[in-house]
Design a protein around this nucleic acid. Structure first.
Length: 140
DNA sequence: GCCAACGTTGGC
DNA sequence: GCCAACGTTGGC
């Protein structure tokens, strides 16, 4: 079974709509060590929940890792990594942070417990729960 | 190596 | 606009 993850993005900076338009993107700019550990652990084919921060604060879609960790020296600082993601499916309805927080089964996930972490693992049970709360996958 | 000060993120 | 959480930096 492929691993499951969640990535956060500010929609003003790089949105789900932008990912759909681009077809795939290098997930660069991550400058946090805990997040880097997770990026390095991602394998091709892993599924990734796509979360918008800011005003939306919702899980909006599902992406897939199409290229495993490779160097991201976009600021000239070697040692950071990025992966490539492509969109796989939308959620029929976005799942808001408020919904996640209101669900006792999800009270332990990193999205709730570590608000500032931008790349995090999601276990299978939490994954299924969130996708179900979103009404399931909607084809692109 | 410890810890106070400071900066950043992101929710409220 | 505020503030809690938490990562980073720098003095000692």
């Amino acid at each position: 079974m492929a691993a499951r993850w969640l990535v956060k993005t500010e929609p003003d900076v790089y949105s789900w709509a932008q990912l759909l338009q681009d077809g795939s993107t290098g997930w660069d700019g991550v400058r946090n060590n805990a997040a880097r550990v997770h990026l390095k652990a991602m394998k091709k084919g892993d599924r990734v929940l796509y979360y918008h921060t800011g005003d939306e604060r919702s899980v909006v879609g599902i992406a897939e890792v199409v290229r495993e960790a490779y160097p991201d020296a976009s600021d000239g600082d070697p040692g950071w990594v990025q992966v490539d993601l492509r969109p796989v499916a939308a959620l029929k309805s976005p799942v808001t942070l408020a919904q996640v927080k209101a669900e006792p089964d999800l009270s332990n996930i990193a999205l709730v417990r570590q608000a500032r972490l931008s790349v995090m693992p999601i276990d299978d049970a939490a994954w299924k729960k969130i996708v179900a709360m979103g009404g399931g996958e909607k084809k692109l």
